[in-house]
Simulated scan of single mutants.
Amino acid sequence: MSRQKAPGYAGLVILALLLGLAFLGADIEMLDSINIAAPVWTIVALAYLLLRLLIDWRADRRGRAAMSALLAAGYIIFALLIFRPLWNGVDSVAATGESLRLVSFNINKDNPEQREVARWIETQSPDFVVLLEARDRAGSVSRLLKKQYPYQYDCRGDGNCSTLILSRTPALAVMPHARGDAENRKAISALTARFSRGGEEIAITAAHMPRPWPMGSQALRLRELAALAAEPSASQIVIGDFNNVPWSFSMNRLAVDMGVRLMSRAVPTWPTGGPAALLPIDNIYGRGCLGLVDLTRGPEIWSDHHPLVMTARTGGCGG
Rank of each mutant, 00 (worst) to 15 (best):
R3G: 15
K5G: 10
G8N: 08
Y9W: 15
L12C: 10
V13C: 13
V13H: 06
L15R: 01
A16I: 02
L17D: 04
G20F: 12
L24S: 15
A26P: 01
D27E: 12
M30I: 14
L31A: 08
I36R: 05
A38F: 07
T42F: 07
V44E: 05
V44Y: 04
L46S: 06
A47W: 07
L54S: 14
I55E: 07
R58F: 12
A59T: 02
D60C: 11
R62I: 06
G63Y: 01
G63V: 02
R64G: 11
A69Y: 04
A69D: 09
L70V: 14
A72V: 06
G74P: 10
G74I: 01
Y75C: 09
L81S: 15
F83H: 05
P85T: 02
W87G: 10
G89Q: 07
S92W: 05
A94M: 06
S99T: 13
R101N: 14
S104D: 15
N108H: 13
Q114T: 09
R115L: 14
E116T: 13
I121V: 15
Q124E: 14
F128H: 05
L131Q: 07
D136W: 03
R137Q: 14
G139A: 08
S140C: 08
L144T: 08
K147A: 15
K147M: 11
D154E: 08
D158V: 09
S162P: 13
I165Q: 02
S167P: 11
T169P: 03
T169Y: 12
T169R: 13
L172P: 04
L172F: 03
A173P: 02
A173I: 01
M175N: 13
M175L: 14
A178V: 01
D181R: 07
A182F: 02
A182Q: 07
E183L: 04
N184C: 01
S189R: 07
L191C: 06
L191D: 08
G198D: 09
E200A: 09
T205R: 00
A206H: 02
A207M: 03
P214I: 04
Q218K: 00
A219C: 00
L228M: 12
A230P: 01
I239P: 08
I239G: 09
I239E: 11
G240S: 07
D241C: 02
N243A: 07
N243L: 03
N244S: 12
P246I: 00
W247T: 00
W247D: 03
S248E: 03
F249T: 00
S250W: 00
N252P: 09
R253E: 15
A255L: 02
V256F: 12
V260Q: 04
M263E: 10
A266N: 12
T269Y: 06
P271T: 11
T272K: 00
A276R: 13
P280W: 01
I281T: 04
I281M: 08
N283D: 14
G286T: 03
G286H: 02
R287P: 11
L290S: 06
P299C: 09
H305R: 05
P307S: 12
V309N: 14
G315H: 04
G316I: 03
